[in-house]
Nucleic acid binder design. Structure first.
Length: 630
DNA sequence: TTAGGGTTAG
């Protein structure tokens, strides 16, 4: 409650007293099922084949400008649209059509600007079609045109075509430049091919093809960050400086964001300090990343401090910044603050978007107010013309499943095609979990086999598999679970520690302790380290079967292996001692648990009270009650 | 006129 007061003070009064802050407006494996067995279908579908399509028909234009603009007007229009994009795709196509029939032909720069406008609109596929059309019709092109087309192919995840076009560029007598190669490096990284990206970068330097610039380095640093190689990213960051290439705001922001996402927010703040000391100005992106990093730790005063700093520097928070705040408050259950921020955004012309409303709806759902969340979709969003996306529906579906209203969730799921939305793996997994949560395992298994396994567009991941394995084990379908586990392995899915923990738990609870123990013992062979949950589950399994020595030994071993027991681990072993009448050992462990700042949970307390009921005079139990239940 | 950074889900 105290936190709530502090937070509300922050949101309302802080933002209102800083008007400057708001000064501007505005796997491809599919699976098939037969009987109770699960089979992966290894065929994968490649979806994108943009370059082979020819652009034939231009949609009827709704373009409302002069139907016959002068050359100068057209050039001016293209210059403007290359920066902002056209409002409608049809408008861009109509302009292209006009340009094709212009005599004399407009300069190549105008065509390049049209392609740039399409890129701004994220219409990469259309840009590629127009580029092809230009080539076919003999419209002059230059290196800018090729670079843009190469970039479009990279955005369409067709780096292979991008490289073909690189060959085409050279064949046409152009010399690919640093932009060409930086684009290709980004394409390789985004297609999860960092080795090729590194090779290209090394060769470019070795053969002196280009001198990498700040964008090249930043692109690679970002790629490294996104793949979790932060230390290599930092090394490259220092290396570029050594090579005389000065990092800029984007470079620093990239690293700062990465550090924040790794929860190293103080190091990120250190970089903010470093950049400002060097005279490199942070911008709204830099601050938004840091604000998010601080929100993750509930460091509200520091968030306040940064917002104040932004105000001093005349940097206005944008929709991203506000969405970060809305999401953070929503996750903390501070729904009043969420509503305040949204109202504030509206007042200041920073219009909430689908991300804002999704965060609001998620906040409602976390408090169990799913109907209120649905009202946001059906009234506010509709009224404001904000189109819901699949996440909007996933939030509602999840909300209903958590409230055990699975039928309502399925209704929404069935509504998706009418809304023009395709369910994602999140949608399916939520419903699967909903069925298991409500004990409807027959429907859960049917849903998985019929809707998920047969769906070639769906790539199952470890999270989904763990939900299925847990549900199967919980309902005593151990053989089916093991069969599915084998299927996962043969399909090439590499199980993570969660999968093994789920199986170890499921097996031991279904009387297969030895199988569970074998899986546990073989984890190092799989290159996996048990985490605190895995250890705790195995300890629980031993306790359940009365193997107190094994449980205690493992308890001691986990800490020796660098894995600290948590409150669940302590309570599990303590209850194990209770059930095996080892009251003194339980007492010693309870002392240790309290010394570490943990306490007996409800289940442990209840177990102790039950024991006291039947053994009222047991001195060891009386001592425990005196010590821990007063 | 072309290349790089930030927000929401199971």
């Amino acid at each position: 409650m105290r936190k709530m007061t502090m937070r509300r003070a922050f949101t309302v009064s802080f933002l209102r007293s800083n008007p400057l802050l708001l000064s501007h407006s505005s796997g491809n494996s599919a699976v098939v099922a037969l009987d109770n067995h699960y089979y992966f279908n290894s065929s994968s579908s490649s979806s994108c084949c943009v370059f082979t399509s020819t652009f034939h028909v231009y949609a009827i234009s709704h373009f409302s400008t002069n139907p016959n603009p002068t050359h100068a007007r057209l050039k001016q229009l293209l210059l403007e649209k290359s920066k902002s994009g056209f409002d409608k795709l049809d408008d861009a196509l109509a302009v292209f059509d006009k340009m094709l029939h212009r005599k004399p032909l407009l300069p190549v720069i105008s065509f390049n600007q049209l392609l740039a406008a399409l890129v701004k609109m994220k219409e990469h596929s259309v840009a590629v079609s127009l580029f092809k059309d230009m080539c076919v019709k003999g419209i002059p092109v230059d290196l800018f045109t090729f670079n843009t087309a190469i970039n479009c192919f990279c955005h369409l995840n067709r780096v292979d075509y991008a490289f073909s076009l690189l060959a085409g560029t050279i064949k046409r007598g152009f010399h690919p430049d640093v932009v060409t190669y930086t684009t290709l490096i980004r394409g390789l990284i985004s297609q999860d091919n960092p080795a090729e990206a590194q090779l290209l970068f090394t060769n470019l330097i070795r053969f002196k093809l280009i001198q990498p610039n700040v964008v090249t380095y930043t692109t690679i640093i970002n790629g490294l960050c996104k793949r979790g190689h932060i230390s290599t990213a930092v090394m490259l960051f220092r290396y570029m400086e050594k090579k005389g290439c000065k990092p800029n705001t984007v470079t620093y922001s990239t690293l700062i964001d990465c550090l924040c996402k790794l929860r190293l927010v103080d190091q990120a703040l250190g970089l903010l300090h470093e950049m400002t000391k060097k005279g490199i100005t942070p911008n709204v992106i830099t601050y938004s990343s840091l604000i998010q990093g601080l929100c993750d730790f509930n460091r509200w005063q520091d968030v306040n401090q940064l917002l104040s700093e932004m105000n001093t520097r005349n940097i206005s928070p944008d929709v991203y910044t506000f969405n970060i705040l809305v999401d953070a408050y929503g996750k903390e259950g501070m729904i009043n603050d969420v509503e305040d921020v949204i109202e504030f955004m509206n007042q200041r012309g920073q219009h909430p978007d689908v991300v804002t409303y999704n965060a609001l709806m998620d906040g409602y759902c976390l408090r169990g107010a799913v109907d209120k969340a649905l009202a946001v979709l059906e009234t506010t969003m509709k009224k404001r013309g904000i189109v819901p996306n699949i996440r909007t529906y996933n939030i509602l579906i999840n909300g209903y499943c958590k409230k055990l209203k699975v039928d309502r969730a399925v209704d929404l799921f069935q509504q998706l095609p009418r809304e023009g939305l395709s369910p994602t793996i999140h949608t399916y997994t939520t419903i699967l979990q909903g069925y298991f949560l409500t004990g409807r395992h027959v429907e859960a298994r049917k849903f998985f086999k019929e809707k998920m396994m047969l769906n070639k567009a769906l790539t199952l991941d470890n999270f989904t598999c763990s939900i299925l394995l847990h549900g199967l084990c919980q309902n005593r379908f151990v053989v089916e679970a093991l069969s599915f586990f084998d299927t996962m392995l043969s399909a090439g899915l590499i199980p993570n520690i969660c999968i093994y923990s789920t199986l170890i738990d499921g097996l031991s609870k279904n009387g297969h302790l030895e199988k569970a123990r074998s899986l546990f013992d073989n984890l190092p062979l799989k290159g996996l380290r048990p985490d605190v949950k895995t250890y705790t589950m195995m300890i629980q399994a031993y306790c359940h079967d009365g193997l107190l020595n094994d449980a205690n030994e493992l308890f001691l071993k986990m800490e020796a292996n660098g894995c600290l027991p948590n409150d669940v681990t302590y309570n599990t072993l303590i209850r194990g001692f209770f059930h095996n009448k080892k009251y003194n050992e339980a007492g010693v462990l309870m002392d240790e648990m309290c010394a570490r700042g943990f306490s007996a949970d409800a289940s442990t307390a209840s177990a102790l009270l039950d024991l006291l009921k039947s053994q009222e005079q047991n001195p060891a139990l009386l001592a425990l009650r005196k010590k821990f239940l007063t």
